[in-house]
């Protein structure tokens, strides 16, 4: 059943004329991993803020329509209640790290302290979260002494420790190296398998194709496409608008114009799909692209 339900959501930031989000209708099921793509300014971050209740509780402005998570509407809730259900990791970890704590360990515990979680449970949850995201060895460092990618892991961990039902991530791996990116996508995928609902704004489409269940494409505040990763990410409609497009997709699109890509074959997003297509491997029967879409049954 839908845990997130947006109906006719239109939002304008204070003192602006153009809506940052325009008539968004969106239902997301429990345990779904949804990636949100779009060029800069398409509304990805605003959608994240709206799901996390920062719109309208922190950013005032004009919010039309309704935003429901787990049956509660943002407008009738408070931000302090909202954080029990929805966690948001900011795009820029610098904006998220509290500045009030001297070590990564304390930083991760900060949210739980504010909820008044008993000490024993708090330590247990912090330890689990540090292990989950692979940053135990950073526990005693100052958050500000870390590299950008390490800070992003800390920011993510400080949200995961809150065990939200809905996890909202705004480009959580933008400053990470490829291995870090792969690990974070893996962790998030496994959380989704265990029932956490994940909404992630992301430019790195080849990872999205491998891990997400569904992709939403925003453009100028509107929902332009919503579907299976393979269908959305290879769509001609994304071309020339500033969307991240996998180099495999672009190369195969050009190759098919020159007759170098198998006819009637879906364009690839990932390396494996590109290897199979260019290498002329037949597709498994009835499986579409086979390697993609760990779609939940």
């Amino acid at each position: 059943m839908a845990i997130v339900n947006l109906k006719g959501v239109t939002y304008k930031y204070p003192l602006t004329e153009t809506p940052a989000l325009s008539n968004i209708n969106l239902k997301i099921n429990e345990g779904e991993f949804v990636a949100v793509i779009g060029p800069n300014g398409a509304g990805k971050s605003t959608l994240c803020y709206t799901l996390a209740g920062f719109v309208p509780h922190f950013f005032k402005g004009d919010l039309q329509g309704s935003v429901e998570v787990a049956g509660v509407e943002t407008k009738t809730s408070t931000l302090s209640d909202w954080v029990l259900n929805v966690g948001l990791a900011f795009q820029n970890p610098f904006n998220q790290i509290s500045g009030a704590k001297y070590t990564v360990y304390e930083e991760i515990a900060f949210g739980l302290e504010n909820l008044g979680i008993p000490r024993g449970e708090m330590k247990e949850r912090v330890d689990q979260a540090l292990t989950l995201t692979g940053i135990r060895d950073l526990a005693d460092r100052s958050p500000y002494s870390l590299s950008g990618g390490q800070q992003q892991r800390v920011a993510l961990t400080s949200i995961l420790v809150m065990q939200p039902k809905v996890l909202v991530l705004d480009e959580p791996t933008s400053q990470m190296d490829p291995i870090g990116t792969r690990e974070v996508f893996g962790v998030i995928r496994s959380l989704a398998e265990r029932g956490m609902t994940v909404i992630m704004a992301e430019h790195k489409v080849e990872w999205v194709a491998q891990f997400a269940d569904r992709v939403i494409a925003l453009y100028e505040g509107k929902l332009m496409m919503d579907g299976r990763p393979g269908d959305v990410l290879t769509s001609e409609r994304l071309v020339g608008k500033g969307y991240g497009i996998s180099r495999y997709t672009s190369a195969a699109r050009e190759a098919s114009r020159r007759g170098l890509w198998p006819r009637n074959r879906e364009l690839p997003v990932t390396l494996d799909e590109a290897v199979m297509g260019f290498g002329g491997f037949p597709l498994p029967r009835g499986e579409g692209q086979g390697v993609r879409g760990k779609g939940r049954k």
């Binding site: 180099r247 495999y248 290498g279």
Partner: peptide
């Protein structure tokens, strides 16, 4: 050092 070669470089190698 956790760096992957460029996408098309990897594809070329695999092919």
């Amino acid at each position: 050092t956790y760096v992957d070669p460029p996408q098309l470089t990897r594809l070329g190698k695999r092919l």
